[in-house]
């Protein structure tokens, strides 16, 4: 199987913009050290054509940053994100997106659609500007993609504020599809929607995948959702992948203690009248990504941690980055 998406040791660091006072202090040599956030810390992964990879983690783990680098809208600090072997972004001091083959669907459809553009223009702007269709074909093209996402073609004449959250997310998906992408990066695409609407949009993704053979990276903090849509899952913690593998296997018997703890901490629907709680919280706080702990980032919250874990960062081997991986449960 060929990889459509590949990242090689991709890393992203953000520096805090120094204040004016700080800049002056630095000029005279009295400034403090620059604070850097390692949002993504050397990640290599590949996604095969037609595959859906779920990217899971808590806020600040770098899942959105990784998604944006793969989509070619954020230049990596190190390493490269490749689409079919070609970097998603050009090099140089002002890197630009080099491919239209990967498109993004964002979390908040109230922020991702231009409120002053008609829906038809929102959908057709990209393909016309990139020469995928002629300007004369724009209306028919918009109608086609609106139909694909389950909206009436008459929506093309209307404005975003005339639609509900679920409908707007359909429009955002139509806009992504109109670019004829091979892959979609979906960043929490249903997190801002109501439960009954979430199911509608999840079903739409499943249908699109079936009918268009799309490759997808599905970024979410919702474990049951990721389990539902993904073939493979990568669990991230503070900029690194701690576990990656077949979705069924990971949810049935996780090998990294963080994955196990994350699964245990999500409350399950309790159907009985018993007093059992059905969830176990992870102890401790998520450390600041400004100042991640040395060694394994999870060691301070891990009950299996020993001296080695505090010093040496474990390498991702065999799908898990842990000095003391949990045993696989017998099938």
């Amino acid at each position: 199987m060929t990889a459509l998406i590949e990242t090689r040791d991709v890393a992203k660091r953000f520096r805090e913009a120094p204040s004016l006072g700080e800049r002056i202090a630095r000029l005279v040599g009295a400034g403090s050290d620059e604070r850097t956030v390692h949002a993504v810390d050397g990640i290599s992964l590949s996604v095969a054509k037609g595959e859906v990879l779920g990217l899971v983690g808590e806020s600040g783990c770098g899942k959105s940053t990784l998604g944006r680098m793969i989509a070619g809208i954020l230049p990596p600090s190190e390493g490269t994100a490749l689409i079919d072997g070609v970097p998603a972004m050009g090099g140089g001091t002002r890197p630009v997106k080099t491919t239209t083959r990967v498109q993004m669907v964002f979390q908040d459809p109230f922020a991702s659609l231009d409120p002053r553009m008609r829906i038809g223009d929102i959908i057709a702007e990209g393909p016309v500007a990139n020469g995928l269709i002629k300007p004369g074909e724009a209306a028919a093209d918009a109608a086609r993609w609106l139909a694909t996402v389950g909206l009436d073609p008459s929506a093309a004449q209307r404005y975003p504020h005339q639609f509900s959250g679920g409908q707007r997310q359909r429009i955002a998906i139509a806009r992504a599809l109109a670019m004829r992408p091979d892959a979609l990066i979906c960043d929490e695409p249903v997190a801002s929607l109501d439960v009954s609407i979430q199911a509608q949009i999840v079903n739409l993704f499943l249908k699109l995948r079936r009918e268009l053979g799309l490759t997808m990276i599905f970024i979410s903090h919702d474990l049951s959702l990721v389990r539902h849509v993904s073939d493979r899952v990568a669990i991230m913690y503070l900029g690194r992948i701690v576990e990656i593998g077949d979705s069924r296997g990971i949810f049935a018997s996780p090998r990294h203690p963080y994955t196990r703890a994350l699964l245990d901490s999500a409350p399950a629907l309790r159907l009985g009248d018993e007093d059992a709680t059905g969830f176990k919280p992870i102890r401790g706080e998520l450390p600041s990504p400004m100042d991640p702990p040395p060694g394994c980032h999870f060691h301070a919250r891990c009950q299996h941690a020993d001296a080695k874990c505090c010093i040496e960062a474990p390498v991702l081997t065999g799908g898990v980055a842990c000095h003391h991986p949990l045993k696989e449960a017998p099938q």
């Binding site: 679920g166 409908q167 439960v195 009954s196 199911a199 079903n203 499943l206 049951s224 389990r227 399950a268």
Partner: peptide, 22 residues
Amino acid sequence: GLLDSLPSMAAPGQELRQIPGS
């Protein structure tokens, strides 16, 4: 409908039972 639309109520990859409309 609310219960049925939860991903945990369906097998992975299967269509969720959605409530139509809004």
